[in-house]
Every structure is written in structure tokens, then in C-alpha cells.
Design a protein around this nucleic acid. Sequence first.
DNA 1: TGCCATTATAGGACTTGTACTATATGCTAC
DNA 2: GTAGCATATAGTACAAGTCCTATAATGGCA
Lengths: 185, 185
Amino acid sequence: MSLEHAILGFLNAHPYSGYNLKKIFDASVRHFWPADQSQIYRTLTRMNEKGWVEIEVVRQESRPDRKEYSITPMGRDELRRWLLSPLPPEDNRSADMIQVFFAGQFSNNEVLAMFERVAAQMRTGLERYAQIPREIEAYDEYTTSPREFFFGMLTLDIGIHSLKSNLAFVENLIERIRHGEIPEN
Amino acid sequence: MSLEHAILGFLNAHPYSGYNLKKIFDASVRHFWPADQSQIYRTLTRMNEKGWVEIEVVRQESRPDRKEYSITPMGRDELRRWLLSPLPPEDNRSADMIQVFFAGQFSNNEVLAMFERVAAQMRTGLERYAQIPREIEAYDEYTTSPREFFFGMLTLDIGIHSLKSNLAFVENLIERIRHGEIPEN
DNA sequence: TGCCATTATAGGACTTGTACTATATGCTAC
DNA sequence: GTAGCATATAGTACAAGTCCTATAATGGCA
């Protein structure tokens, strides 16, 4: 489970509440690790039981009380252990690859429509990616060092880079179909 | 849910048993859609209840009886509908991206070790990808048309292409760290 | 005054998937 | 002759995540 570790990563820089964490996830790692609000709260509870985080209830006058979670030494150890240990071989489920895999069951016209849709989705994906730095800087509750920010942005670069090269691939395919290079049957 | 749709995709070409399907998944789409044996059987049962597949029990003498699943017209409709409809925006969880995201919490030496590990994993991933066509051709229970095979292989090409470009990116980063282009703190 | 948005936490029901185990048959290698 | 492997199906328990809902305070707007 790495929602726990992603949370530890953020808490290592600064203590946050569940609500804060949801905002931060949405403004940063959403594209490669979406986090459900409900799941964040449940995970924080479990992490507290494990002794990875501590809770401080912060009274607020104009707003509901917050539970501020900070990382414990045990939590820091766990984060370090996880970040420096190899991950079990990837299990990246991607339904769009399944769609492409079975594309041969349709005519070239339909495949073309499918691929154009995929390309369009990739383009909007790229746009959304490009906005992330602004989003995360706009969320002023989020504080981090320049070095950590650099590596965070680097991850987005990888995502963008990867999306761009996939898009180029798909666009090339669209051209090949248009030029009649893929036989119908 | 697209395990259902992936199964429909395979059954559209040929009827298979749960056991067959497990083999086929492992020999083809495993890298972007791993399928658990237990999950396949449960899913087939559910699909039968929905009327997407039909069961024919095939008596075998030297082996346990097989339940052969074939796609129904309803199943075909559902497959077509799904393949030609846009997917909800991707939710590709990838834990290695989380690891890179938080890499800034470590020294350049540790980051280097991390990235080299990631690069090594990508290289073995590439090797495994390259073996797939041979694997799927070796599983003689799996039958498909040349056109469908072409699109299947195309999916693998996208996977390989994407992995290669990510690997190049990571290798470039490793070089940048080695040349002292990323300040320590 | 009523309605909606924001801040804040959390439970219930459900889905999808994993890990492990059970059961059964027949073939092959040692 | 028995251990292990391939074929074949399926259940239990659990983990992780989604969707929807509940609760509660405040502030803004019409």
C-alpha cells in the first residue's frame, strides 16, 4: 500500500490535516496517485494506530476543529525504508491499452475514430499536467523546500514526457491508417 | 470494470475456459492488465448471470471437465459499446512515480542509487516485453486473426515505446546528477 | 430567510482485486 | 510408489479503493 507512503512523504515536510492532504494530493500527484477523501481519513487512522503519525487537535473558532497529523520517528523510518526499497514489478492497469489491444475487431474507420479520441484525451491530459505547478503553488497550505519541489516537478516532467511520446506514437499511427498502410482484413 | 471487457475481447475471437483465459492473459496483456485466476472465475460467473457469455460443459476423459465460455450477442454488443466509448480519465496508479516525487528528501548519492534501480527495473521490463510475442504464439490454445494479432502487437509496441522513452529520461537524469548539475541543498 | 460554498471529519455499502487454500484427475520422472 | 506437475474449478478472508451520505459551523449572496 503506498497511499500510506505518499502521505508520509508529505507529512515529512510539514504537518497537515486530512482535509489539507486531500487538497495537496489533488494539486500534485493526482495523475499518478489519486486519493479518495474517505480513504485518506481511514488511512490516517490506521497510520496513527501503527505509530507512524501523531495527532494534535487544533481548536479553531470560526471553523471546525482540525486534527493535525505529524510524522513520528517510526514514520520517518518507514518512509525512508520504503522510498529506498525496490517495488514489486509494476501492475499498471490501463484500460485504454486494452481498448487498443482489441481494436483489430473493428474497421479502419472505427479504429481511426477510436485513436483520435485517445489522442484528444492525451492532449487534454497534457494540458492538465502543465497546470499542476500553478495549482500546487496556489495552495498556500503546502510548504516544501526548493530541492523537494524540484524533484516533484521532475516527476511531472516524466509524466509529460511519457504522454508526449505516446501521443506522437498514436498520431503516427493515425497517419498510417489515413494513408492506407494498414490493410482492412 | 474492464476485466469483463478484456475477457469479452478474447472470447469474441474464440470460446475459452477460465483456465485458458488465465494463460492467455499471462501471455499477452499481463503488463497492462494482470488477471488473477480466482478473479477470472468469479468474473465469468457474473458475466454468465448478465447474459454476456454462455457455458458449455465439455467432458474430458484424461482431465477434469472444462467449462467452455462463448460470447453471446449481448456480450458482443457490450464489447462493441465499451471499445468504442471514451474511458473515464485515467487513474494510473504508479508507486514508482511516488518514489521519484519524494526523492528530494534524500542526498544525491541515494537518489542516484534509486534512479539506477528504477532504470534497471525498466530494462528488465523491456526484456520481458520483447518476449511476449513468442509467449503468445507458443500458447497454441490461443487463436486470432492476423489483423487482431497486428493490433495486439501494436499495443505492446506502445508499451515498449513508452518504457524506452521513460528509460532515456531517467538515464539522462542519472547523467545530470553524476555531472553535479543538481545542487545538493 | 433560505440556500449554497467552504472547511472539517467520518461511517456504510459496495467493488475490485489478491493470497491462500481445497479438491480432483492423470501423467511423468526418480 | 510417490512426489510433483499440468489441467481444471472455486471458496474464504482480506486489502484497497469508490461512492454516497451524515454531521456541523460559518460566511456570502440573493
